[in-house]
Every structure is written in structure tokens, then in C-alpha cells.
């Protein structure tokens, strides 16, 4: 406990560094998954290819990925960009399937009636299909957010700055409190971001709580199962 009190500024700084590495992958994987998920949902062939490739990508362990990425990106071995890219790739691997399933689960009655009313395909995607996929997308991005925050710590063994440094430093100096503090801070950060996403979801989708259709509930289960 003493260690924590004496080192609050350090923990604060590591937390900020951690946040700086976590937010970009979460945002990027969401943004990039929308077009990719659309393509996967729209064309059967691309869905098979895309999901297989992403599945294999997801199977690559994080530390080896962090080491291999520099030779592809031309970055330095300890560059924090590697972490952002690696975690974005994992995020995409999860989110593309979720997005594709979510878009596919929009009821054909609704999309047909939207077309019949005179929504152009483009308007329909943004105003009907995407919002209706929202609850499932939210469930997916929550999974991505939590695992991203947790995975950022792996970079610490390569010396990339995050809360993970509290683990490696704690081990070297044999300070249990430091490691524990790192774990508590990481988990707290994950839960905080998760809560923020839930809040954002309520703000953007006030209808979702009124409309608990069985299809969205089911797809949410699918998203959870795909991520477990």
C-alpha cells in the first residue's frame, strides 16, 4: 500500500500512456470494421475469405505478432505503433464478423419497407441498417475494448510504456504491491472504458432499451460467444 501511495504520480502517468495505446485500436477497429463487415455481409465469397484470414490473424499470439510487425511496417522493434497496429488487427478480426452478422440480422421486412419508402441504398445503410445493427456492434466493441486494454500490457516485455511496466518492474525489484497496483489499474481502466461505451450506447440508441427484439438479443449472444 505504501508503494502505491508513494508512486501515485507514476501510476497516473502509466495509466495515461496505457490509455493512449488503448483508445486508437478500439476506435480504429470499429471504424475499419464497418466497411469490411459490410463487404463480408454483402458478398458471400468475400465473407468466407475475409473471415478465414481474420480468424487466422486472431490466432497469432500477441508477443510474436509484436515482434513480427516491425519487419512488415518498417518500424523499430520497441515502437509503440506496433502495439496499436497489432491490437487494431485483433479488434478488426473480432469486429468484422460481428459487424457482418449484425448487418445480416436486420430484418428483411424492415429493410424492404425502407426501400419501398424511397431510401436510397446509401441512405438506407446509414439511417436504417447501421443503427439497427448498433446494439450488436456495441456488444462487439465492448469485448474488443476490454481485451485491448488487457493486451496493451504485453508490450511491456519489449519495454513499450504502459501499465504493464508496473508488472515487469515489480518482478525485477520484487515488489508485489507494484504488480498488484498494475493489475488493479488495468482492470479498472478496462471497466471504465466499458462503462463509458455502455453510456455512449444509451445516449446514441435510446430505442434499444425499449426495443428488446429477440433478434438483437440473439445476436448479442452470438457476439459474446464469438468472443469467448
Amino acid at each position: 500500500m505504501n508503494w502505491v501511495i508513494e508512486n501515485l504520480p507514476l501510476i497516473g502517468q502509466r495509466t495515461l500512456e496505457h490509455l493512449a495505446l488503448s483508445i486508437p485500436p478500439i476506435v480504429l477497429s470499429f471504424v475499419l470494421s464497418v466497411p469490411l463487415g459490410w463487404v463480408a455481409n454483402r458478398y458471400r465469397l468475400s465473407r468466407g475469405v475475409l473471415l478465414t484470414v481474420l480468424g487466422l490473424l486472431y490466432a497469432i499470439p500477441s508477443l510474436p505478432l509484436l515482434i513480427v510487425l516491425p519487419i512488415i511496417l518498417g518500424t523499430g522493434a520497441r515502437d509503440s505503433i506496433n502495439v496499436v497496429v497489432a491490437l487494431t488487427l485483433y479488434g478488426i478480426a473480432l469486429m468484422v464478423r460481428t459487424t457482418s452478422d449484425a448487418l445480416g440480422s436486420v430484418s428483411s421486412d424492415i429493410s424492404q419497407s425502407a426501400t419501398a419508402m424511397g431510401f436510397s441504398p446509401w441512405t438506407r445503410f446509414w439511417k436504417v441498417d447501421l443503427p439497427l445493427a448498433g446494439p450488436v456492434l456495441l456488444a462487439g466493441i465492448r469485448v474488443v475494448a476490454v481485451s485491448t486494454v488487457s493486451l496493451v500490457t504485453v508490450g511491456a516485455v519489449l519495454g513499450i510504456k504502459s501499465l504493464g511496466l508496473l508488472f515487469t518492474d515489480g518482478l525485477q525489484r520484487n515488489i508485489v504491491a507494484e504488480v498488484l497496483a498494475g493489475m488493479v489499474a488495468t482492470i479498472a481502466l478496462a471497466l471504465l472504458i466499458d462503462a463509458a461505451l455502455v453510456l455512449l450506447g444509451r445516449l446514441l440508441m435510446p430505442w434499444a432499451r425499449a426495443t428488446r427484439t429477440s433478434s438483437t438479443r440473439r445476436s448479442r449472444l452470438t457476439a459474446e460467444a464469438a468472443a469467448s
Binding site: 421486412d109 419497407s113 425502407a114 419501398a116
Partner: peptide, 22 residues
Amino acid sequence: KVKLRRRIGYVMQNSGLLPHRK
């Protein structure tokens, strides 16, 4: 097509209402 549909009313089974709009 799109303009044509906007000047023709359409009502279907199961209403096809947009669940995310009031």
C-alpha cells in the same frame, strides 16, 4: 426508382416500421 417510391405509399405486413425511430 428512389423518387418514384417516395411518391407512392407502401404498407406491408408486419408494418415494417423502423424500430429505432419514434
